[in-house]
Design a protein around this nucleic acid. Sequence first.
DNA 1: GTCTATAAACCGATAGAC
DNA 2: GTCTATCGGTTTATAGAC
Lengths: 195, 195
Amino acid sequence: MNNTKKEILRVAKKMFNEKGYNAVSVRDIAGEVGIGSGNLTYYFAKKEEIMETLLAESKSEYTVHISSLEAMDEFFMYLQQDVKENSFYYGSHTQLAQVSSVISDKQREMYEENSNVLKEGFLELCREGLIYKESYKGEYDRLIDSLLISITYWIPFCQMKGSIDVRSYRRQAWSVILPIMTKDGKVRLFKLLKK
Amino acid sequence: MNNTKKEILRVAKKMFNEKGYNAVSVRDIAGEVGIGSGNLTYYFAKKEEIMETLLAESKSEYTVHISSLEAMDEFFMYLQQDVKENSFYYGSHTQLAQVSSVISDKQREMYEENSNVLKEGFLELCREGLIYKESYKGEYDRLIDSLLISITYWIPFCQMKGSIDVRSYRRQAWSVILPIMTKDGKVRLFKLLKK
DNA sequence: GTCTATAAACCGATAGAC
DNA sequence: GTCTATCGGTTTATAGAC
């Protein structure tokens, strides 16, 4: 990939991180890179293509099968890290859904993928006797939705709360799961979180 | 308040509800009202002032003290209704935070208010023996954050999921609380939800 | 007070010279 | 590949008629 193109992507990601997708214009980006805005258009015909390219590059290779409490904890830490590193995306999640269907499709895809990963994880933890069985049909699905809605909007939520140091998503996630954990599961979780 | 001004607000709210804040221009609104866009500027110097006024008007008079399971259920139904009626606001929550500090201050204020209402409610339900005591310091606060992050971003989340009929927030909220409910509390809740 | 008309500044995007 | 000039669109702001 061309050097200028790389530089555009680097600067755009930085600026989106800081100010959000909508608040950054293509002229702003071109100015920061030190090229004309028309030249930027040569590389990216539309503003949304910059975001789509950034998104494609950050494509996760984290295809995991949660097979233990530790694996689920790692998954939460991965999500937390993902949100932190790609705040250019998560910080503008709602806006981006309206910008391009490519992106909104990607969002749904990521939701379904993470939802499936967590569902398998819940079932595995249940088999291991670490969490209780569903007390009604669909309980796991709803708790998983709570976990995913939290991670998806974690950045704007923390910004809204005005919390100076963003409390970790990892702890937030476990807080939702803890109440359905067995005594055995709780013991193992506390040991894990203390480390 | 002036008749024209009222009409502007009515039309703007309707259009924001349908298409989202960003997708509606002041010209669109003026055109729908049947006045010139410059005339609209006479009433609202900036686009954000329209939203700020709408927000100030929709100021909830629902200052409640949750004193029972039924009251908390009513509160969830109120939140659900609020989100539905004011989708012009909740559907663009993230964007609006970046638009004006008046709005972002209001968002934080609403979060803190709802957070306090729920916190008192949790403590009351605990006193009544319907939910368990905190199993660690801060557990209630985290569950409440889960409830509030869900309601705040309920609309974009449901749109992302692509669920045709939006599952109710009321059920989602109780799903998070159910795991910390006592046997007594669960019995009363199920009776309540069956009605 | 109420409204019209219009300018100013900015945006994403395009065309074409070099 | 890079640039300037420009289009049609937006929000914002002003000047002035009634």
